[in-house]
């Protein structure tokens, strides 16, 4: 049984169709990436899955129908959305940001343990706990956003453009971390414009074009396919 199963999902903003009739599924423990150009509907799909938008069609998570369920309920079930543009609370300290990641949890011992493991995964964050999150660099903010999402103990992590606006070297670091998180057992749905990196790290990929699925398959195969190379990899 797949961990997430999306069937015939459509989302419209008023009369404009942003996403039309897309279906895909993610198996436990894998990374699936949604790639595509600007306006292809990647973020919309992600928001529809996490309950921030009301879609038609159906979304099943862990065997339950979660179509249109509120994000705060989904988070408690283990579906955590790390929003686009990092969405950190810039006027709060780094520590306060992390604590908000544990907002729905009450297992203090385990939270403490998880915090420690975040510091191992992101040593830079530990150095800046008392600093306002807005004063962090772009890469650090992205790491904070990921750490904060991980503190909610996701079974499935939705990552929206984690490489957005980062220097190439930091992009490498972030993707290395994404792989590490995945190896620790977190299933990941990754939305990316950086198709090159996304196809390297993901197991499966879905290519979106103007709101519908253009191609789908194992990431390594898509990376070799001529159509994808021309359209998204520029070679």
């Amino acid at each position: 049984m797949p961990l997430l199963k999306v069937e015939n999902l459509s989302v419209r903003y008023g009369s404009i169709r942003a996403v039309t009739d897309i279906s895909f599924s993610i198996e436990q423990g894998e990374i699936l990436t949604l790639i595509g150009a600007n306006g292809a509907g990647k973020t919309t799909t992600l928001r529809a899955v996490s309950g921030m938008l009301k879609p038609t069609g159906s979304v099943h998570f862990n065997g339950h129908n979660i179509t249109g369920t509120r994000p705060d309920i989904l988070l408690r079930q283990g579906l955590v959305h790390c929003p686009e543009g990092r969405g950190i609370f810039s006027n709060m300290t780094v520590l306060e940001n992390l604590e908000l990641g544990t907002f729905t949890r009450h297992d203090n011992e385990q939270i403490h343990h998880d915090m420690q493991s975040m510091f191992t995964l992101f040593p830079r964050i530990k150095e800046r706990l008392k600093q306002n999150a807005g004063t962090l660099s772009g890469g650090e903010q992205q790491m904070l956003a990921i750490a904060r999402a991980l503190l909610a103990r996701p079974k499935l992590l939705l990552l929206d453009e984690p490489s957005l606006g980062l220097a190439p070297q930091l992009v490498q670091t972030i993707f290395k971390i994404i792989r590490e998180i995945n190896e620790q057992g977190v299933t990941i749905l990754l939305v990316e414009q950086n198709a090159h990196m996304a196809l390297q790290v993901a197991h499966h990929a879905v290519v979106l074009e103007t709101g519908s699925i253009a191609m789908t398959g194992p990431a390594s195969e898509l990376a070799k396919s001529d159509a994808v190379r021309k359209a998204y990899l520029g070679c």
Partner: peptide, 9 residues
């Protein structure tokens, strides 16, 4: 949006 993503109703 970030608050919602953190599970805040």
């Amino acid at each position: 949006i970030a608050a919602r993503a953190m599970g805040i109703n």
